[in-house]
Design a protein around this nucleic acid. Structure first.
Lengths: 340, 340
DNA sequence: TCTTTTATCCAAAGCGCTTTGGATTGGTTA
DNA sequence: TAACCAATCCAAAGCGCTTTGGATAAAAGA
């Protein structure tokens, strides 16, 4: 069933039918009713391609994802997608996942833009100086950045206060009396990772605590890395008495290594984790419950979707950016250092 | 830059340029070269919407995902997407995630079909009698099913042997001498969940072991559920001496509850988990290492993408289906029951 | 030398929709 | 009563591409 046929059945012009369906004012309410009913009855629904071709709009937003079996497509991405879906479904906006081909990320973005399949793009996991962002700015293509990058041109972004998170976490541990604090975070180069390290360093510097480079780890977020690196850390002299983990996955491995060594969490070794709030992994239900810096990935994504809609509605991007504070939630996994 | 302009610049017709670009034979090789170079130089790339409108093909496949903040969009889905991306990127096939609107899944599928935005659909998480599948068959729309459903019409599917998995797991535990075995699996109604229970029952029946309905749990896959349900199970009389968990997330909670009770995994209580092989959660690195029934979600997805391409190439669907065996990997979390 | 092929190329007709720029009608205003 | 207006509706022109059905010229066959 196509527009023309529907119009014929109704003895109306395509124009009128189209307008009725799309809610334009210049059509009689009675007519609109009739059209809507007929559309429903015949199961008519506009061919999206034709529609987009005519309108120059798409109704989909783009997301570039790693295609290799890297660690980068993990639970974080899943939560992120779920959050986007939650909001975008309201406006019937779909999203297009474009896998990275030949490890050439930038050209996937270019292809996405020039093929006119999406109205806007969401960029995540920015590095300090992000080529993708400058490219999108140059191309004048609408996007929202999840995270931040050092580019001095106005663009829409949402980030959480990663520096503050690790600053709070480290400060809390210092307050408790810890002087040997390690951090196991994400890969170096990513802004969030660098910001977190900054916060960590800032806290230690403020107290005049020397920074041991062996205590700063950057790697993938995984149980295994958490486990291995903690084993390594626990073999250092002096040992760290506290660890800050960048993700829940990492923390699982860290806890395991700590227990394995016969230590108790929150006693001989303290652990603070950044918690992106996975529905299937609840920090307060752990034993001992986990002290965390908490910020829901899903909510952030939902908000980003919201911002994206505003960008598409033509709102100036320099007004669209948010920095979310991160909350430190003290639970049982952090306590004063205990002699051994 | 559009086709017309490019053609003018080259003093060729749009026809020829289009044909050159799309690799049709009726164009001189020299001309084709010239066209390709020009396209590259001017950064020309066909408007996908126009292209699809003209061809009636799309270059994207659809995937319907839950939009609410349910548990259903979790790490499993993420792995699945990653696996699809891995294969589909080769053919430059994007995918379109359509969130479920108003909890009306079937109409999202209908919308996806009628709006002509995707060439095919991937259906996952089938229930025993799946309305979506029969609808897609009725509509004669190409799809591949991840899992199985009781429908007697030919269609493409890939499933793992869930029944065999739990049968093997239960049998192994029975061999070790366990007589009180619990299972904590996914939600009732889903085929995979029912199949697993079948396997579990089959194993117990074969040995004449009575089935305690309190020992069969169906719920979301999450750490928390694992923890809570295990606590409940451990308060039963008699206690189960072994537990089969449906996912790694569940198993994390189960282990925690077991340790919490002062029991050792593989000693007082055994645990076997189904492992979908998450890159960030490695069964063999756990302490104690985890006995699992193992089947990579990501590989399955990659294979499904492969099958999808075959479906789109017109291969008859009744030849396209695979049942993957599941491997039991015995590690340390399962052992003979120990008196307490 | 003249007719056939063969290799290239092109004009124009869609694909199914939105939107511009009128028509038409019945009711208002002067 | 004539001129004007608002409310409805429509014909037709795109949107940018692919593809059909020739045209044209060069090569081959008679």
């Amino acid at each position: 069933m196509k527009l023309k046929e529907l119009a014929e059945k109704l003895s109306l012009s395509q124009t009128t039918v189209s307008r009725a369906l799309n809610g334009y004012p210049e059509v009689n309410e009675a007519t609109r009713e009739r059209v809507n009913r007929a559309a429903l009855k015949f199961g008519y629904s506009a061919n999206a391609n034709a529609r987009r071709l005519a309108m120059g709009r798409v109704g989909a937003i783009g997301l570039v994802i790693p295609a290799d079996s890297s660690q980068r497509f993990g639970p974080h991405t899943a939560e992120f997608l779920a959050g986007l879906a939650e909001r975008l479904s309201r406006d019937e906006i779909d999203f297009l996942l474009s896998p990275i081909v030949d490890n050439d990320e930038i050209s996937v973005y270019k292809r996405l833009i020039s093929s006119k399949r999406v109205d806007a793009i969401i960029v995540s996991g920015p590095v300090l100086v992000d080529e993708r962002v400058s490219m999108l700015l140059d191309a004048n293509f609408p996007f929202v950045l999840h995270g931040r990058t050092n580019i001095d041109r106005p663009h829409a972004w949402l980030d959480i206060d990663n520096q503050g998170a690790f600053y709070q976490a480290a400060s809390h541990l210092l307050d408790l009396g810890h002087r040997h604090i390690a951090m196991i975070d994400g890969l170096r180069g990513f802004t969030f990772s660098e910001h977190r390290e900054l916060g960590y360093r800032q806290a230690l510097n403020e107290r005049g605590v020397e920074i041991d480079p062996r205590f700063i780890v950057h790697n993938y977020f995984s149980d295994e890395i958490g486990f291995r690196e903690t084993q390594r850390l626990l073999s250092c002299t002096p040992q760290p008495t506290a660890i800050i983990a960048g993700s829940m996955m990492t923390a699982l491995g860290v806890s395991r290594a700590i227990r394995n060594k016969g230590y108790q969490l929150g006693k001989q070794i303290s652990l603070i984790t950044h918690d992106d709030v996975f529905p299937y992994l609840n920090a307060s239900n752990m034993v001992p419950s986990m002290t965390t810096t908490r910020s829901s990935m899903r909510s952030a994504a939902t908000r980003i979707a919201e911002m994206l809609v505003r960008v598409l509605d033509g709102e100036p991007v320099d007004a669209i950016h948010e920095l979310w504070p991160v909350e430190l939630i003290v639970r049982q996994s952090s306590g004063p250092p205990v002699g051994r």
